[in-house]
Nucleic acid binder design. Structure first.
Length: 154
DNA sequence: GCCAACGTTGGC
DNA sequence: GCCAACGTTGGC
C-alpha cells in the first residue's frame, strides 16, 4: 500500500468537482508524462491514499484527500482523436498511457499552502519533488512519514 | 502576464 | 547520440 500526491488545476478539475461526481469518483485521464505514467501503471493499487493538490491557482497547496479506486488501466482518451490528450502514437494493442479512478475522501480543514510546505524542504519533506524548484511532476509518491507530517499541519 | 525549469522532438 | 528549439508547467 502506497501514498501519493496528485496535482490538479482547480479551474479545470478541482477537489470540489471530484466531490460532485457520481460516486465521487473520476477517471484520472490525461497523464502524459512517463515518470508519472510509470508510477501510475506499475505501483498504484486500489485503496492507496492520495493527497489532492491544487496547482496554478491563487493559493497552490494541498486541499484534501482522495483514494485510488480502480486498478490501472489504459487511458481511453489517448485513442480518441477528439480528445484533448489524444496521442496518435498510443496503440490500443500496446497502450502508452494509463489511468486509475480517483475517489473523493474529504477536504482538509484548511489548505496547506505550498509556501508553508517549502519551509520543510530541508527537513521533514527533504527530497519530496513538490517542494523542489521547477518541479513539474504531476503524480509523486509520498512516504508514510511525509504523509503523517503533512496531515499534522492540517 | 512573466518567465524559469523542464520534457520532448527532430535535425544532423 | 547530441543538443538546440520548442511547448508546457506552474509559481509568483
Amino acid at each position: 500500500m502506497s501514498d501519493w500526491l496528485f496535482k490538479s488545476e482547480p479551474e479545470t478539475f478541482g477537489l470540489d468537482d471530484l466531490a460532485a461526481r457520481p460516486g465521487q469518483t473520476e477517471p484520472w485521464d490525461g497523464v502524459r508524462n512517463y515518470q508519472a505514467r510509470n508510477l501510475l501503471r506499475d505501483q498504484m493499487r486500489i485503496g492507496d491514499r492520495i493527497l489532492f493538490y491544487h496547482s496554478n491557482c491563487e493559493l497552490p497547496g494541498i486541499v484534501g484527500i482522495a483514494e485510488v479506486a480502480s486498478a490501472p488501466r489504459p487511458d481511453p482518451t489517448a485513442f480518441d482523436p477528439e480528445a484533448r490528450y489524444f496521442d496518435p502514437k498510443s496503440d490500443p494493442d500496446q497502450p502508452r498511457w494509463y489511468l486509475v479512478d480517483v475517489r473523493y475522501t474529504r477536504h482538509l480543514k484548511r489548505t496547506i499552502p505550498l509556501a508553508e510546505l517549502k519551509a520543510f524542504a530541508q527537513g521533514a519533506l527533504d527530497g519530496m519533488p513538490l517542494v523542489r524548484k521547477g518541479n513539474r511532476l504531476s503524480i509523486m509518491p509520498v512516504s508514510p512519514e511525509q504523509w503523517e507530517f503533512i496531515l499534522g499541519l492540517e
